[in-house]
Amino acid sequence: MSENGVKPVVELKGLTRSFEQGGVRIDVLRGVDLTIRPGEIVALLGPSGSGKSTLLQAVGLLEGGFGGEIVIAGESAEKSDSHARTMLRRNHLGFVYQFHHLLPDFDARENVILPQLVADKPREEAEARAEQLLTALGLGHRMDHRPSQLSGGEQQRVAVARGLANRPKLVLADEPTGNLDEATSDRVLAEFLALVRGEGSAALIATHNERLAQKMDRIVRLHEGVLE
Rank of each mutant, 00 (worst) to 15 (best):
G46A: 08
P47V: 13
P47D: 12
S48I: 08
S48A: 12
S48N: 07
S48V: 05
S50P: 10
K52P: 06
K52E: 10
S53L: 09
S53V: 05
T54G: 06
L55F: 05
L56H: 08
Q57P: 04
A58H: 01
A58I: 04
V59R: 01
G60W: 07
G65W: 03
G68P: 05
E69C: 02
E69M: 14
V71E: 10
A73R: 07
G74Q: 04
E75H: 14
S76Y: 05
A77S: 10
K79H: 12
K79N: 15
K79C: 07
D81T: 10
D81F: 09
H83K: 15
A84V: 13
A84T: 15
A84W: 01
R85W: 11
M87G: 10
L88A: 02
R89H: 06
L93E: 00
G94F: 04
F95Y: 13
F95Q: 12
Y97A: 10
Q98S: 09
Q98I: 13
L103R: 07
P104A: 04
D107A: 01
A108W: 07
E110S: 14
N111W: 01
N111T: 00
N111E: 08
V112M: 06
Q116F: 06
L117R: 07
V118L: 13
A119M: 02
D120G: 13
E125P: 01
E125F: 11
E127Q: 14
E127S: 12
A128P: 01
A128H: 15
A130G: 05
E131H: 13
Q132W: 12
Q132L: 15
L133P: 01
L133F: 06
L134Y: 11
A136V: 12
A136T: 08
G138A: 01
L139G: 03
L139E: 05
G140R: 08
R142L: 11
M143Q: 14
D144C: 06
D144F: 04
P147C: 13
S148K: 15
E154D: 13
E154G: 07
Q156C: 04
Q156T: 04
V158Y: 03
A159I: 07
A159F: 05
A159R: 05
A161V: 01
A161K: 00
R162V: 01
G163R: 03
A165F: 10
R167C: 06
R167F: 14
R167H: 14
K169A: 15
L170I: 05
V171H: 08
P176W: 00
P176S: 10
T177Y: 03
T177I: 11
T177M: 00
T177A: 04
G178E: 08
